[in-house]
Design a protein around this nucleic acid. Structure first.
Lengths: 188, 188, 188, 188
DNA sequence: AATGAATGAGGTTTCATTCAT
DNA sequence: AATGAATGAAACCTCATTCAT
């Protein structure tokens, strides 16, 4: 109840009006109860981040297990896109909070899981080999997050269209050949 | 003096400890004077965003005028990367503030200028035609910002390396052909 | 169990972190149970004061019955000193609480018992007669408490040394003769 | 204004109802102003302790300079007694706070000054030599404080009477001869 | 008799903003 | 134009106490 109230307050009033008292009131509990379950305001935000990202991460983990690298990556992009467009404002604000709380236990855990998943995807044989897997994973995450946040902020609703654009950027990034290669390829 | 003090406070102490009183003290002026030049705290942040982004925008505008689309785009990416890596923490925090202040006059102005520039770049003949220029411009910005923020947050220092990766993502995104085309090309 | 837990919390964390919830947890019972046995936080503190002072009072009562005035007084001083040095931090904090809770039933009871004991000691023939027994009793208590508290706070460990100094102050106080008498004695 | 308001609140409502908001209101200023002059609640208490003890310390310092050891000591006792009986409740509560704030800068300073003064008094030739001056100084302070606090708490008003009793205890403590010496003296 | 989740008043502290000087 | 003391709403968090189970 409290976590969902926190989500709603963040969506409705934004970061500035997000206070523990308001969240508790919206949740229909007392501040005391809020603090019985979350040791601090930031811990509550961390829990919210964890809850919001968990479905996403689980989808991605399943995809990573069963599918090949490329299909898994596409599944990840699709999951991210539909997740973002479901509650765009919330997702955007949580991305900020995530950056602001790099030491929160929940946040670290989620980040680690996502990184692990992407690393496994990028290691599959059908994905072009990357010079530095860690960097590539970070970049893929950054591209997805950047595009998907912007789309949500712009009010886009169509997940399929967004997925297509994100995939182009991600696959383009992962392509083994530098721009010159594409040129020489075209020449043939 | 005040704007630079604001930048330093933001870098040194982060969003949480950024207060008008502290900024004024660091600037060596009184709070009263701060409010004589900036109508509110958010106005000051807006001015800071404007100042930080201005150099970037001017570089990009010059590039857009003189160079072709692709080279101009590369120049933009390079400008973004070096700008970000010059003061990474500040740039990252300002990206957050920028998202938080969508109605600030200064913020709207710089956003409009950047959008205009990118739109012109994407309209050049040497750039693959995009189905929706507005969306493409937004996406290019999002890709650049996403990658460049992540790199700054990760502590990267080498602008050239970063530029290469961003270009791959951007050009990949702009490519007219869907993934399947690249496949047939490779077959040759 | 609860009273001992209260003692430990007071020693370990001090007055500021002494809360009923923490005490209950340390005692291994629920807050509800705590309130079944102690009607309020202050009542718990009162009970703790009573328990801590009881041994002391009993020793003193026995001494008062069997020994002469001076020896009884010395026994009291010795009891106070060793009591204080056994758990110095606790004893010090409880002296504060004792002053803060003058209306607590338990506190009043122990105070009354001690006063009675000292009054009886001071009435013995081998103790110089005092102009006002009530005042003298209060003063003797005050001297003892002042000195042993300070010694405990200063980290003293040796009870015998402390006893010697307290006795000097107490006996000096009780001496019938004003300072001038001692002067003439020294002249001989 | 704020410090005096703090004193009054402490006297009227005691430690438990002493809150920064209440003090500010009583002082006729805002909480913000209170925190402009005192960095925390404890700093305010420290300042109050300093102010209350300062007159006392200054009197004692003057006495220590001009008078011999014994007379200076008597002057100190008299100063303590009249100081205590002027605002007994306040003095008593501040003694507690003093013990609770051993690391406050103001508190440490006052304590150091008093200790220095007493050390000098005890070093005078007309005061019996003490085996350990530091301990003796601590004990003298403890005796005075113990007696004077108890007298204030008991509602005594007559400073002169109190002074006489304190002096007896202090001089008795300082006497060179242990109990046995007094005995041998009598034998002569 | 025991539990412990729930309560909510109230505590300390911060900080954007004002305005008399 | 500049100052900076003053303001006070509002933030986060604690904890003594209750009461349904």
């Amino acid at each position: 109840v409290i976590v969902e109230a926190a989500a709603r307050i963040l969506e409705d009033r934004g970061h500035a009006r997000f206070s523990t008292n308001v969240v508790a009131e919206r949740a229909g509990v007392s501040v005391g109860s809020l603090y019985q379950y979350f040791s601090s305001k930031d811990a509550l935000i961390g829990a919210l981040i964890k809850r919001e990202t968990s479905l996403l991460v689980e989808d991605a983990e399943q995809a990573a297990e069963k599918l090949g690298g490329k299909k898994a990556l596409s599944a990840l992009v699709a999951a991210c896109a539909s997740h973002q467009l479901r509650r765009p404002k919330l997702a955007l604000l949580l991305d900020f909070e995530e950056a602001r709380l790099p030491f929160d236990a929940d946040v670290q855990q989620v980040k680690k899981r996502i990184t692990t998943i992407i690393l496994r995807m990028l290691s599959q044989p059908d994905v072009p080999p990357q010079p530095n897997l860690e960097v590539a994973a970070r970049d893929v995450m950054a591209i997805i997050k950047g595009l998907v946040d912007a789309a949500g902020a712009a009010g886009e609703m169509d997940s399929a269209v967004l997925v297509g654009r994100v995939e182009k950027a991600v696959y383009g990034y992962l392509l083994p050949a530098p721009p010159k290669r594409r040129k020489s390829c075209a020449r043939l």
